[in-house]
Amino acid sequence: MKLRKLVAGIGGGIGLTAGVNRLLGMRASELEPPLDGKQGTYRWRGFDVGYTEAGDPDAPDLVCLHGVNASGSSHEFRGVFDALAEEYHVIAPDLPGFGRSDRPPLLYSGSLYSTFVEDFLSEMADEPRVLASSLSGAYAAVAAQSVAVDELVLICPTAETMPGRRVWLRSLLRAPVVGEALFNVITSKRSIRYFNADHGYYDADNITDDLVEYQWQTAHQPGSRFAPASFIAGFLDPDVDLGAVLSNVHAPVTLVWGRQAKTTPLEGGERLAEAANARLVVFDEADLQPHVEHPDQFVRQVVRGENLPGAMTDIEIEEVGGEDATTRE
């Protein structure tokens, strides 16, 4: 009798969990375009990869690659996209498994994304300037070893996000019902706001309701948990020494860091800049996303190079705060 009640209770719990999962899925609407511009589709290895482009097609190409997280998408570039399009032909894809791109239940890997970036840059752009953040910075660096690029501008790039690779965790998050329920907890609006405040934004006032809503929507599209499951379990980290890779790139490299970045502290950025012989631009009052928290300054001082000293040393830290940039070696 007790066993029968236990089995009935487990069955009821699973049924309730499945019902909640279905309800949350029904609340998510079709995802709106992440950016203003022409929406297109790039067909890649069975994926329909969504992208936004804007600007004069005859202008120099600039490709924006968003960071990887449970609710990642090219919406990350909403504050700088229009300004970039004033002088570039800007193309911003949603990586496979994210945003408006296809999200099949594959076992996603770092090598898949490095290959995607390499193919996208070679087929969709002509020797572009590349703007990439976080883990996508590593994918762009790997791709730039074989694809001609004009410059890499990498925002808090890293090739190491999770310690080790945990098959059990990836399997758990991919599991039906239970895995979906766990992912729904990780990507609840409360969790999204918490993670943004904890290691995404310096100023919590920048975490708007509209931002949280879009990130919630993208994290609750069909198949949304499969790529993040591989990310959370450590399988999206490319097995490379990022400093060594960047030192082999035959194009200028600019690293951009938030002084208050916690998951990838500035000290690591300084070491990476030295290893890669790269320029390092540091934004005060910024965490992992200085281009999001200080979009106007980012475009003016990093992309356009305004108000910066004319002579550059091999390794230089440019501290960006307020309206002016100061320099120290």
Rank of each mutant, 00 (worst) to 15 (best):
305 G>Q: 04
305 G>Y: 01
179 G>E: 07
201 Y>P: 00
306 E>C: 04
284 D>K: 01
209 D>W: 01
306 E>H: 11
217 Q>M: 07
204 A>L: 09
302 V>G: 06
178 V>P: 00
187 T>I: 01
236 L>W: 05
190 R>H: 02
297 Q>G: 15
283 F>C: 03
292 V>L: 07
228 P>V: 06
210 D>C: 07
188 S>R: 00
220 H>C: 08
211 L>A: 11
198 D>S: 03
228 P>Y: 10
265 P>Y: 05
229 A>G: 03
228 P>Q: 04
178 V>I: 03
208 T>M: 15
298 F>P: 02
202 Y>P: 00
252 P>K: 05
304 R>Q: 13
310 G>I: 03
260 Q>H: 14
273 A>Q: 10
250 H>A: 15
276 A>G: 03
297 Q>S: 12
276 A>Y: 06
247 S>Q: 11
308 L>M: 13
204 A>P: 02
249 V>C: 15
244 A>Q: 08
303 V>W: 02
176 P>A: 09
268 G>K: 12
193 R>W: 09
209 D>Q: 12
186 I>Q: 08
225 R>F: 10
219 A>Y: 12
229 A>Q: 06
298 F>T: 00
221 Q>M: 11
305 G>D: 04
238 P>F: 09
220 H>R: 13
293 E>T: 00
211 L>W: 04
191 S>E: 11
235 F>K: 07
302 V>W: 01
257 W>G: 15
208 T>G: 11
212 V>Y: 00
220 H>G: 06
240 V>L: 03
245 V>R: 12
262 K>H: 14
220 H>N: 05
204 A>C: 01
226 F>N: 00
243 G>C: 07
280 L>G: 12
189 K>P: 02
283 F>E: 03
231 F>S: 11
219 A>V: 08
243 G>F: 09
222 P>Q: 10
207 I>L: 05
254 T>K: 15
193 R>H: 12
280 L>D: 08
225 R>C: 12
271 R>F: 10
310 G>C: 01
206 N>Q: 14
177 V>T: 10
243 G>Q: 08
253 V>H: 10
257 W>M: 08
197 A>W: 02
283 F>Y: 11
268 G>R: 13
274 E>L: 07
267 E>S: 15
179 G>Y: 03
222 P>G: 13
241 D>T: 05
225 R>I: 05
226 F>H: 08
203 D>C: 03
300 R>E: 03
213 E>H: 12
270 E>K: 06
247 S>V: 06
245 V>E: 08
244 A>H: 08
210 D>E: 15
194 Y>P: 05
302 V>D: 08
195 F>S: 02
251 A>K: 10
225 R>W: 10
288 L>W: 02
309 P>F: 06
295 P>L: 04
234 G>N: 11
305 G>W: 00
289 Q>C: 06
242 L>I: 06
261 A>D: 15
280 L>I: 03
310 G>Y: 05
202 Y>H: 02
221 Q>C: 12
231 F>K: 08
253 V>S: 11
291 H>S: 01
284 D>Q: 08
300 R>H: 04
264 T>V: 15
188 S>K: 00
230 S>A: 14
177 V>F: 09
295 P>S: 09
246 L>M: 14
295 P>E: 06
235 F>T: 02
299 V>G: 04
297 Q>V: 05
231 F>R: 09
270 E>S: 12
240 V>E: 15
178 V>W: 00
268 G>A: 08
182 L>G: 08
212 V>Q: 01
205 D>T: 15
